[in-house]
Nucleic acid binder design. Sequence first.
DNA 1: CTAAAGCAAGTAACTAGTTAGTTGTCTTTT
DNA 2: AAAAGACAACTAACTAGTTACTTGCTTTAG
Lengths: 186, 186
Amino acid sequence: MARDSEATRARILDAAEAEFAAYGIAGSRVDRIADAAQANKALIYKYFGTKDELFDAVFAHRVLAFVDEVEFDATDLPGYAGRSFDLYERFPTTLRLTTWYQLERPDGKLPAIVASNDAKLAKIEEAQRAGRLTSAYSPLELLTEVRALAMSWHLHTPELALVRRPSRARCREIVVESVRRLVAQA
Amino acid sequence: MARDSEATRARILDAAEAEFAAYGIAGSRVDRIADAAQANKALIYKYFGTKDELFDAVFAHRVLAFVDEVEFDATDLPGYAGRSFDLYERFPTTLRLTTWYQLERPDGKLPAIVASNDAKLAKIEEAQRAGRLTSAYSPLELLTEVRALAMSWHLHTPELALVRRPSRARCREIVVESVRRLVAQA
DNA sequence: CTAAAGCAAGTAACTAGTTAGTTGTCTTTT
DNA sequence: AAAAGACAACTAACTAGTTACTTGCTTTAG
């Protein structure tokens, strides 16, 4: 090992994350990433391959960190929604990256994400069987609605953002409360 | 062959809608739009200006048609969510265009959308004053959550889409029911 | 000395936007 | 009614700049 390639990789990854979050895959410029990372463009290709592959590396990195950070408890979905909300507030780029990913890589399936989803669905099913969670909805149905509510405040169109948003605490409270109502036993 | 600028404009708009929905602004190619519309590229610039302006025209056109089609009734938000769901199912490009718009035009504010939002917020407030709608949430809060629920099934990551979705009717039912629970008087 | 890290300088292909000119249609003049 | 003029619709070819990706060489650490 001659120089510190790990540090260079990390700088590239950071710069790429900011670039991709801002402009998406098609809109991002590899030159800009190289400049921001203070690294040579050829290194990007050497370490990460094509632009698409660089995006995948960035996305997997960020999303796994995200998934790791928010603990999933099927018997407390309101709490899970609240913690998800907190992370969306703390790392706004995550949701942007995810959205670009959905739009620009509709066929991509990251194994780690698939596994994480499967684990959550299984936990929901288990909680339902134990009678600790409503069975009015299937696991997929529950996960879908809980997620939508957790990110509801971050899906605003520019136009709605003109109206003054409630305080962060209030937004969080609403997310938690609406999930509580969702899973409340009728 | 008679010349008909209206028809040409319409063909360009249609082709541009498909292109932008698929690739976003940065990823779209004006040449591809011209080919698909069987129109010359220069006409696009003549009729619509720059690529960004073409996107705005496409977006305004589609979104206004969408907004016009779904009737808003503040005293029946579950019904409104259900009808929104129906339209997302019928015109899948609408949500894609909206998402590209949020990501790529964060500063854009289409007056028609602002007006439509204001009208909805006012109607919610009125329904609340009349006691025909819960006052547990502010108008903006209600609109935010109802919208998130209405589009919950269309926000899936590619990975979650691997799990088989319930039937359309069932998804709709869930959307309506979850909004009902949201607005239910505690 | 050597192997890997790093870089300047390319290149081929692409892309938004322009230009200068042609074709079809409607209006005016005789 | 027919020729002439006016004007809008339309087009092929182009420009100037950009972009992803590569090559061949230099530098550095062990």
